[in-house]
Design a protein around this nucleic acid. Structure first.
Length: 421
RNA sequence: GGCCCCAUCGUCUAGCGGUUAGGACACUGGCCUCUCACGUCGGUAACAUGGGUUCAAGUCCCAUUGGGGUCACCA
């Protein structure tokens, strides 16, 4: 999110920190008191808590409300006090939510809520309204859990004589189980997803598309999101988080150059390559390898894993892959393949493809016969991008070197393997 | 419990009186294929229930049920 103004970027509506605005809240509250729209309450928290508990003891389902003890008192004892709002007992508040439409709440559901604590710090509803009113906020968009705060806040705007902002409440994202999403349901903060290699635009895409729709379109760039978003197409029902779909959206973003340009892809994946101990990589080397992992990586962490063998010499060798494919039987083919590629001067995918196929035809072999052994020699793994892509990215020298090394591992396996048959 | 809000495939959703109820993820069958993927063709799968209104209801109204939010000198 980009801020128009605020503590980090400055602006005209400061100060922005609540503790620096205390005098403002006090001033606005005093105005309300002088207009009899608010009053000083000297009831202590302890007394109120007692009353609350006493009522609960008598009737567990009862609803405790501040009994308005101090509402009409005229004296001003020398004692700590809170400022309470004199809530109307009759009538109701109606507002038009940009998502939910008209919402009406009866005033008898409210109580004389506290505006300012005895230590001078405002409570949320009052602080938010004073801040928004004094800073010229025109739209309040927040989660549905704030919907109950809206009527009291509207009362405050009106009591303060301030212009009402628009309100938009959004449905909530629940855990897959249907309960409120929380820490115990795994990752819930966007910064943690960044650390797990998720694309920021992909995260935004999933989040915005959750509870909002634009026809059948599922994948959006950030500019497209800004262009297409509208309150009318927001749903009203709560939803459940789906990590699989989230990952699928990530995949779409990492696959597409339009959504994640090579430059960004390279920068992000480089930090995860660094986390794997692969430092001092050349930017262009990383850039040149990206195209081979794009469609196989859903996150930058997966991409870093897929890119690892390009930058590690020798590549980490998977033990079972080695014993299965780098055998004495395959060693001679690997040697022969390396020898065939030795004279190749134009080291391109296309050239490698035709050279290898010519060699296969000559030796009456299928690509299947050599693919896995060569793959393991080249990458240390049984799953990788296409062979010719891998060799192209690796370059001639390192490709031949790895092929030869794979062959010698196979030859030495001759001595280690006899009892295995 | 009071007040408020919500309800279409397992999940995210399209639908705004007449649809074979569409798409995506997931699951699944085939094709493609040097592995893993990608891609591609197909399949399973939903209108919570009951009343109305109407020639006609997933779409409008009411009730029920179910789910969620919130009830502080927290935010």
């Amino acid at each position: 999110m980009d801020w128009d103004e605020g503590p980090e970027v400055g602006g005209e509506s400061g100060p922005y920190f609540q503790m620096e605005r205390l005098s403002i809240y006090k001033e606005w509250a005093e105005r309300l008191i002088s207009q009899k729209k608010a009053y000083r309450c000297y009831c202590t928290k302890e007394v109120l808590d007692q009353q609350r508990q006493a009522l609960k003891a008598k009737d567990p389902k009862a609803n405790f409300r501040y009994p308005r003890t101090c509402r009409d008192r005229t004296d001003q004892p020398d004692a700590p006090y809170v400022v309470r709002f004199a809530t109307p007992t009759e009538g109701s508040v109606t507002y038009v939510d940009k998502v939910f439409g008209e919402v009406t709440t009866p005033n008898h559901a409210q109580q004389d809520f506290v505006l300012i604590r005895s230590d001078g710090v405002p409570l949320y509803n009052f602080g938010a309204v004073v801040d928004d009113a004094s800073m010229g906020i025109t739209l309040v968009a927040r989660g549905r859990d704030h919907m109950v705060n809206t009527p009291p806040q509207i009362m405050l705007y009106e009591a303060l004589g301030s212009k009402l902002p628009e309100f938009a409440h959004l449905p909530m994202m629940l855990a897959p189980s249907g309960e409120k999403l929380g820490k115990r349901h795994g990752t819930v903060s966007v910064t943690e997803y960044r650390d797990q290699g998720y694309s920021p635009a992909g995260v935004l895409n999933y989040l915005v598309r959750f509870g909002w729709s634009h026809g059948d379109q599922e994948v959006f760039s950030i500019p497209q999101l800004i262009e297409a978003f509208n309150w009318e197409a927001c749903g009203k029902g709560d939803g459940k988080f789906d990590s699989k779909k989230f990952l699928a959206i990530q995949h779409e973003h990492l696959k597409s150059q339009a959504l994640t340009a090579d430059k960004e892809y390279g920068e992000r994946v480089t930090t995860f390559l660094g986390a794997r101990g692969l430092h001092t990589l050349s930017k262009s080397d990383v850039q040149n390898a990206i195209f081979t992992v794009r469609e196989r990586s859903r996150t930058f962490v997966e991409a870093a894993d897929g890119l690892d063998f390009y930058f590690r010499d020798p590549p980490t060798m998977d033990a079972s892959a080695q014993s299965k494919f780098l055998t004495s039987a395959n060693a001679s083919n690997l040697r022969s393949l390396a020898a065939t590629l030795e004279p190749v001067s134009t080291w391109t995918e296309q050239e490698l493809d035709s050279r290898v196929h010519a060699w296969l035809a000559e030796r009456q072999l299928q690509i299947k016969d050599i693919a896995q052994p060569a793959r393991v020699a080249l990458t240390g793994r049984t799953a990788s991008p296409g062979l010719f892509q891998v060799m192209f990215v690796l370059g001639k020298a390192r490709s031949l070197e790895r092929l030869a090394h794979g062959a010698s591992l196979g030859e030495s396996a001759l001595h280690a393997m006899p009892h295995k048959g």
